[in-house]
Amino acid sequence: MKPLFIDSKMRLDPAEHKVPNDSYTLGPIQAGEPCCIPKTLFSIKNLSLHYGTKPALKNVSLDIYEGCITALIGPSGCGKTSFLSTLNRLTDMLPDCKVTGDIQFNGNDLRDPSVDVLGLRRDIGMIFQKPVPFLLSIRRNIELPLREHGITKQSEVDSIVQQVLQDVGLWEEVKDRLESSALALSGGQQQRLCIARALALKPKVLLMDEPCSALDPISSAVVEDLITSLRGRYTVIIVTHNLAQAKRIANYAGFFWVSDRAGCLIEFGQCKQVFEAPVHELTAAYVDGSRG
């Protein structure tokens, strides 16, 4: 199997987790346009997706830039979630799902059958709309994927658990009840636990499928701040229905719409341009609220 790693140093290296906490904090966090054109991480060309004979996505082409937050907006059922699932090959698990087109991830063909899918999914984490805490303790929720990937030394595991929980701002809230069930957490806490669980694997990319839509406004704001703080360290692709949120956090935005009963990408560009000077009239109507 061909590894698809960006940089071998970015793999979960036990030694790396010993670096002091401050290496996890970032410089000034900015929304809006990036200061320079960053490196292309995903390059997607003519991506189409069918469920059985039903088309879900048609001819989507776009580039995702490293270290940026890319927001995908558009009405329900226009294939945004399906699009995300192709990027970590989760579509492999859906029966009847057929993907065509070309996805380059860091210069390699992501859809090559010989790609090590487990390694790929380690590099590309995913957060779902509904938080899915496993029926385990809070600690075990994070521990389980770590141990799965060969990190078994208790001290390392403990330090990673603490680090990622601090990263998502959950440490203070749960440090005294790490052994209690993750199901006892509130919705917002559960979602942050899920993000922590994904971060523990040190992915390069985070795919987020409407991570705030199932949460109350306050938890939603906390998670949003968290996502903003990931900028630069992670490449984030976020699907959201909340236009204001997309505007606040994203560097790039893509607008999906349903045409001919299949989702397609109408417009893609820098966030500011998409929201303030959209090229396509559908985009203009959607972002100012008169359509969709």
Partner: peptide, 27 residues
């Protein structure tokens, strides 16, 4: 057992075998 379990486990790059042993069968 909700399909979310399987997808979440896969997104965390767990093998199906370990998702079964640790998550699905216990659930």
């Amino acid at each position: 057992v909700p399909n979310d379990y399987r997808l979440s486990a896969a997104a965390l790059s767990m093998t199906r075998t370990s998702a079964l042993i640790h998550l699905l069968v216990p659930a």
